[in-house]
Design a protein around this nucleic acid. Structure first.
Length: 265
DNA sequence: CGGCATGTTGCGCA
DNA sequence: TTGCGCAACATGCC
């Protein structure tokens, strides 16, 4: 379920569970999910370290330990669950950190059926982390900044707001929903957008992120209602004007939109 | 069975 | 240089 709000939720849970705890055992994911691709070294390097903090930037999670950083991207199906240390492995469990804070122990399990996720160990920030653009929650979005990016690009607006070096954390759902709220066709070339469009889009991106964060608040399990205006609703009526929702492919991703509320320009 | 999926990267081509 | 399309990664679900 990984977009910015999902990673934010998990970062908070992991922070509360792991901060100040010492890793007593660890195991890493197999194959290409891990960097360096050496599960034995992964366990060895982590064991005995204390978790200092858990942070998020865009869709990346970073677990800070004393002298080591663990970076994790959820890919398409990544997730974390907190379990008792002696609980059996979760289905599709790919990595785990068993930690102890005094007598309190907890096991953080990284599950990822499709294995598109990444786990990276490094002593410093990795390029994928450093190259991220401003995070809408951590840094805020500057309407002026976005308008400047738009002015210099002919790419489709949806493609640009999902570019992680432009804005960190915007995925297909947030982009699709925010563009509907802002009444912009996802295929609109950026250079045709005016400052007012950029300002409106910034507001709607922020609103959509807040809305999705709220959707997950107070949810104890990992299941919540997903109630979207157009995402996943191709062929159904637009909630605003009842026109049939259409879809187009932008940057290789399905983009639902209302042809009446989001006219082409 | 075919088609689709909340993500990213890398390659070929215009 | 810019931008685009597409395959690949691996698996579940409808």
């Amino acid at each position: 379920m990984p977009e910015l709000p999902d990673v934010e939720l998990i970062a908070g849970r992991l922070r509360r569970a792991l901060r100040g705890a010492r890793v007593v055992a660890a195991s890493g994911p197999p194959g290409r999910m891990l960097r360096p691709a050496d599960p034995a070294a992964f366990a060895r390097r982590l064991k005995g370290r204390v978790v200092k903090d858990v942070t998020r930037r865009g869709k990346w999670l970073r677990i800070d330990l004393d002298g080591l950083r663990l970076f994790n991207h959820f890919g398409l199906t990544g997730w974390w669950r907190l379990r008792p240390v002696d609980a059996p492995a979760e289905p599709y469990e790919r990595a785990r950190l068993d930690a102890a804070r005094g007598k309190i122990t907890v096991s953080a399990r990284y599950v990822d059926p499709r294995r598109f996720g990444r786990v990276v160990l490094d002593t410093a920030d990795i390029p994928e982390w450093k190259e991220l653009g401003p995070d809408p929650v951590r840094d805020g979005i500057s309407a002026k900044g976005l308008a400047d990016v738009f002015a210099r690009s002919r790419r489709a607006v949806k493609d640009v707001i999902m570019d992680q070096t432009v804005l960190a954390g915007i995925g297909n759902i947030i982009a699709t929903e925010a563009l509907w709220h802002a009444r912009l066709d996802p295929r609109t070339p950026c250079e045709r957008l005016e400052n007012a469009d950029a300002a409106r889009l910034v507001r709607e991106l922020e609103r959509e992120i807040r809305r999705e964060l709220k959707m997950r608040e107070g949810v104890h399990g990992d299941v919540w209602s997903d109630d979207f205006a157009v995402y996943g609703r191709t062929g159904k009526p637009c909630p605003r004007c009842r026109t049939t929702i259409k879809s187009a492919v932008v940057g290789g991703r399905t983009s639902a939109y209302c042809p009446r509320c989001q006219p082409r320009r």
